[in-house]
Design a protein around this nucleic acid. Structure first.
Lengths: 194, 194
DNA sequence: TGGATCCATTGACATTTGTCAACGGATTTT
DNA sequence: AAAATCCGTTGACAAATGTCAATGGATCCA
């Protein structure tokens, strides 16, 4: 179960984790199964855990005044989930996170995370790199929103995240791209005729 | 000149920088004046420096096929600027960054940054915190884009960034919010009548 | 001080996108 | 197997937003 995480970590750091380090990681991350539709986090709760997805798919969304869901994040194998603001600041989250497929994840608390990073410097390095990647990815996503109309946002998404198309239905993708499912459907139709 | 940076750093870390540490910081950060309209970074270049703004205002934007500018970031005193992707990966940037006002900034190269962070652990801590804050802020901005119509995005912006309204003209703000200046103007008018 | 440029606003109109309702096919649940 | 739910599509229409052109005031600059 933890193997997936070890592999993931090793792919980011210079020299692989040693036996002792692996043991520390194993102790800090608790396996958990999250069934389809089950909440990992509900609006109003504090996000107690960050999760590494070993298998499955999850979505993060907010709910507006009219009860409509707006997808702010999607994640599958080898992705992290959680509301960072709530997790770090210990404030109530405005997001919901639930499993879109039956999911196996590894959970860690903020305290354990801090201890672990302190004990294993390679993980500090990892954390830094992940933050870099995350910052770069969100910057790009933001750039799409300010500069691209719906059609090009979709085209760009299809190019960069083809995996997601097989895992999430279109109305989820549409919401993630800031449009309705109807608009997505019509844009797709246009794109076919070219 | 470096005082502003020291103050800024100290506000984020547990115990203030010592004399030696200050000297290291001072050596790594080179002061530079950037005149209004002058480029700090042009599309196609590699972003060699990260900049801390001591005084002034800058904007970061991309340019689309039709030559239209799209503002992806705005920054004033005590903010950082630079294209992180380009800075870290050493790839050509797709962004332009220029000074909106005459600006005084402190510049650091990636190599010096890495050395400095290594030499001054408190700055590692700082970097971590800044990444947290940045991640949280961009997450919120993204959430606005997927879940809020133009009017609410503006209202939210006015609440959270009143400083920017005094520093940048409306057509810049509009672009930052992913709408045209005309739309922003009309929305403002509506909001007055309430 | 004149002329140019920048800025915000407005009107008329086009385009994009959203809303609502309906449909049929697939999948899930009971 | 029947019923319920989910999903993608479509049509008719409404609402939001963009485009283009014009204006007047402010500011910059030569």
């Amino acid at each position: 179960m933890h193997e997936a995480l070890f592999t993931y970590i090793n792919s980011y750091i210079r020299s692989p984790l040693g036996t002792t380090e692996k043991a520390l990681v194993k102790k800090a991350f608790v396996p958990k199964k999250i069934r389809k539709k089950q909440y990992f986090l509900q609006e109003g709760e504090v996000c107690k855990y960050a999760a590494f997805i070993v298998k499955g798919a999850m979505r993060q969304y907010s709910i507006d005044d009219k009860g409509a869901e707006h997808i702010v994040g999607l994640s599958i194998e080898n992705w992290w989930v959680g509301d960072r603001e709530s997790f770090v600041m210990l404030t109530p989250s405005i997001y919901n996170i639930d499993a879109w497929e039956d999911t196996e994840a590894l959970l860690i608390t903020r305290a354990d995370q801090l201890n672990l990073y302190h004990a294993v410097p390679a993980l500090d390095e990892l954390s830094l790199k992940l933050d870099e990647r995350h910052a770069i990815a969100t910057q790009k996503r933001l750039n799409d929103f300010v500069s691209l109309p719906a059609e090009k946002r979709l085209a760009h998404f299809v190019e960069t995240h083809p995996e997601f198309l097989q895992r999430f239905p279109q109305h989820i993708i549409a919401s993630y791209l800031g449009m309705t499912k109807e608009t997505l459907s019509r844009i797709r139709k246009q794109m076919m005729h070219k």
